[in-house]
């Protein structure tokens, strides 16, 4: 009897072990799938030239010659063809090119494409947008969640319906309107457009405010607080996750937005954001020379956002699970 129990226990344990091994293999596979593109991004950013068949660059020319000796002997590659222009050799040139415009004698490439300027533009846009947008989004969400006024349901429905129109089309109109007042091709018009759309993004923060018990408001109201005080003194301290979430999201959006940025910049190099600028390097005929630079730019853009994300990850998760879904 006892023996049988033991055996049962053992077979059960073995089943769990095999399951876990299987799960670990799966997880490692998933991790590889998700990490390989980023390793590729970093590896390519150090390449002297983009060649489709190479994942990593050769460390230097001598190593490349050594490793390709077999191919040369077989006559598949000519020895004099092994140059940095045709084989990916490790180099820091791509990074130097990105910020070359800041030095005294920039290269021709750095002269045409002011990456540092795009970076600075995007940073300014992201900074201003994230502060103003957060204020407006939270204000709107608070009003819809906590205040009761005659137009409330109507406005919420209106915003829902407006969100169904492809926002891009109104952009065409906005572009020509801005042109009328001479604001097109300007990063500040981009900021204006991002901020003006704040009201459309109330859903998640409102969902979060909805979960804060109303009795808190009522208690404060009995103590004589007005609605402004309730908002800043009662609700805000409880809503830290959603504040950070909104800040993080609105800070990240300009780095990835291509559609509006491209349209508003109107091809003006000095007024581009990183997304718009980097994409110009991947147009036809430019890929071989510019793909490594694109990768270097991608790495530089990703680092601060990634850092921010990892630091604030906790709030991000709390904000999105508290606001996006209600159970």
């Amino acid at each position: 009897m006892n023996n049988e129990k033991k055996q049962n226990y053992r077979s059960h344990k073995r089943a769990i072990l095999t399951r876990n091994i299987f799960v670990y293999i799966l997880l490692v596979l998933i991790s590889i799938i998700w990490l390989v593109p980023f390793i590729y991004l970093v590896a390519q950013s150090f390449c002297s030239v983009y060649v489709g068949t190479y994942f990593f660059p050769y460390l230097n020319l001598d190593i490349a010659k050594d490793m390709l000796a077999g191919e040369v002997a077989a006559g598949r590659i000519l020895a004099e063809d092994i140059r940095p222009e045709t084989f990916p050799i490790f180099t820091l040139e791509n990074y130097a090119d990105l910020f070359g415009g800041l030095t005294n004698n920039p290269s021709a490439f750095a002269n045409t494409y002011p990456f540092y300027r795009w970076y600075f533009n995007t940073f300014i846009i992201a900074l201003i947008t994230c502060i103003l947008q957060t204020v407006l989004v939270l204000g709107t969400s608070y009003a819809f969640s906590r205040l009761r006024f005659s137009m409330r349901k109507g406005l919420m429905k209106l915003i829902l319906i407006l969100g169904m129109f492809p926002g891009f089309l109104s952009l065409v109109i906005i572009y020509y309107t801005l042109k009328l007042i001479g604001l097109q091709g300007n990063i500040f018009s981009l900021i204006l457009i991002y901020i003006a759309g704040s009201a459309m993004q109330y859903y998640i923060a409102k969902g979060f405010f909805d979960t804060i018990p109303r009795s808190l408001d009522e208690a404060a109201m009995i103590d004589g607080a007005n609605k402004n005080t309730i908002f800043f003194r009662i609700i805000m301290p409880l809503a830290k996750p959603i504040v950070v979430y909104t800040l993080l999201l609105s800070f990240n959006a300009p780095w990835g937005d291509f559609m509006m940025g491209r349209f508003i910049s109107g091809g003006e190099m000095q007024q581009m954001t990183v997304a718009v600028g980097l994409q110009t390097w991947l147009t036809k005929g430019q890929i071989e020379t510019n793909f490594p630079r694109f990768c270097a730019g991608g790495v530089i853009v990703s680092i601060p956002i990634m850092a921010l994300f990892f630091v604030l990850q906790k709030y991000y998760v709390e904000g999105i699970t508290g606001g996006a879904v209600k159970g």
Binding site: G139, T140, L147, L162, G167, L169, I174, A196
Partner: peptide, 22 residues
């Protein structure tokens, strides 16, 4: 009228940059 205070700027933005263009 705190609702009007909070919603004035967002709704103005909405009217000028979304409703009018649509």
């Amino acid at each position: 009228s705190y609702d009007k205070t909070l919603l004035f700027i967002p709704m103005l933005g909405l009217a000028l940059f979304t409703i009018l263009p649509i």
